[in-house]
Amino acid sequence: MKRMSITSWLWIVIGALYFLLPLIATADFSLRAEKDKLGFLAYQRVFADPKFISTFTFSLYISLITIVASIILVVPTAYWVRLRVPAFRRVFEFITLLPLIIPAVVLVFGLSRIYGKYPFQFMIETPALFVVGNVVFSLPYMYRSVDVGLRAIDVHTLTEAAQSLGASLPYTLFRVIFPNITVALLSGAFLTFAIVMGEFTMASLLVQPAFGPYMQLISSSKVYEPSAVAIISFLLTWMCTGAIQLLGRRAPGQTQIAGSR
């Protein structure tokens, strides 16, 4: 194996410092809630705050619904595009990238204009519109993950093999395609989870009791707690990434979607 040069190591160290120093500083600050003593007081206060629990639970609940809705929407669509209209794959890719281009404020305004009227006003009165918005926001990540997963398997031949054995298309989708893209689905699901947990703009505009606005609220009214919440968020994200890696290694015969083997 080729040995890395000193310059390579130098760049790695600079990169690591760039990312780790603010994190270490935040972690250090979050532990200094008590004077002249390191401790977990800020974390205790955060976990004791009923608003933390309620907003965190709410966002968790919304993220799970968003993940399910995204999978139901994206997997059959991506499968159909690959199988029947591959010429339109670029068009679909572009459509799924639109949420990255359109500002969140514009998107929320558009959604509330459409779904705020009869017969959809229940959408704005319940968290339904928030879920719809999150599905749209997570579309680029979920579609890409699923598409990469589908690209890793021979969708056409597997479908034809299943059909020649008597399987219908829905059966093939659920019993052949789904199990072979679980790593891709998990990858998309964890990305969606991370997006929904940290979502702020839409939650604020739609006045949803979500975790994002809570973090913003305490950062303007507390000193040490925002740092503790930031560290908790980071840990959550890392756990998600770790889970993707772990599940990717265990899945038999599947192509790794995130990270390396």
């Binding site: 031949t157 034809e160 020649s164 072979n180 015969g253």
Partner: peptide, 20 residues
Amino acid sequence: LSPTKRNVGMVFQSYALFPH
């Protein structure tokens, strides 16, 4: 007739075994 109803078995060049 749909391929699912033909009762025709097929073996593919790329094997097409279900990986899972």
